[in-house]
């Protein structure tokens, strides 16, 4: 494993810890898209089916279990703190994303089997799953700082996978085309957010330094 991959995974892990911390300390689901979080449950469950028949490493197994369990826990937390009276900004028609990802998975896969199609589906769905969350962010106007840190760390994870893939291509001659293309798509989906994050958060922090 190379440094980009490790940093990417750590960033992914941290993003989920930030989210759980934010929701449990404020006891509020406000500003967080339940649709995005439910999509991640589907992403992890459909991608990590290989837990049952393929052993890669202890690290790999533990991380997969963490992502499945934590994503389910987040949905559970959001349901607990969701106030029905609150006006919802979580309005993005998420079924388009599911449908699109499924069509892409049928076209682009390494093997026309249920496991491989679900694996591909999970990559395409992950690449666009943040969109309902970005819509909530846009409609709410002002977001909690923790929410923006969460989205940033989550976006950074797939962005860091890109140098990881370049590194692996040159050292191992390995290139997972589906992962690479969906990963680039995912980073493009985030690009606008990254730019705003940089302008708002990074520059403000610098500004406050004595």
């Amino acid at each position: 494993m190379n440094i980009f991959r490790i940093l990417g995974d750590i960033s992914h892990l941290i993003s989920i810890l930030i989210l759980i911390h934010a929701v449990s300390t404020t006891k509020s689901a406000q500003g967080i898209s339940l649709k995005t979080q439910a999509a991640y449950v589907v992403v992890f469950v459909s991608r990590y089916l290989d837990l049952f028949f393929r052993y890669v490493s202890l690290y790999n197994t533990l991380m997969k279990l963490f992502f499945i369990v934590s994503s389910i826990y987040v949905v559970f937390l959001l349901n607990r703190y969701k106030k029905n009276s609150e006006k919802t900004n979580d309005i993005f028609p998420v079924w388009y994303l599911f449908g699109g990802a499924f069509v892409f998975a049928l076209i682009f896969n390494y093997e026309f089997s249920i496991v491989e199609i679900l694996w591909s589906f999970s990559l395409w769905l992950e690449s666009v799953a943040i969109i309902p969350q970005l819509v909530v962010l846009q409609r709410t106007g002002e977001a909690q700082l923790l929410t923006t840190h969460y989205i940033f760390a989550l976006g950074l994870y797939r962005a860091l996978y890109i140098p990881n893939w370049i590194y692996r291509y040159y050292t191992e001659g390995r290139m997972d085309k589906i992962a690479v293309i969906s990963g680039i798509l995912q980073t493009i989906v985030y690009s606008d957010f990254f730019y705003i994050y940089y302008k708002k958060v990074v520059k403000n922090l610098k500004f406050k330094l004595p």
Binding site: R54, Y161, A179
Partner: peptide, 10 residues
């Protein structure tokens, strides 16, 4: 090893 067998990333 086919590409499908090589899923070793998260």
């Amino acid at each position: 090893e086919s590409e499908a067998d090589a899923h070793d990333e998260l």
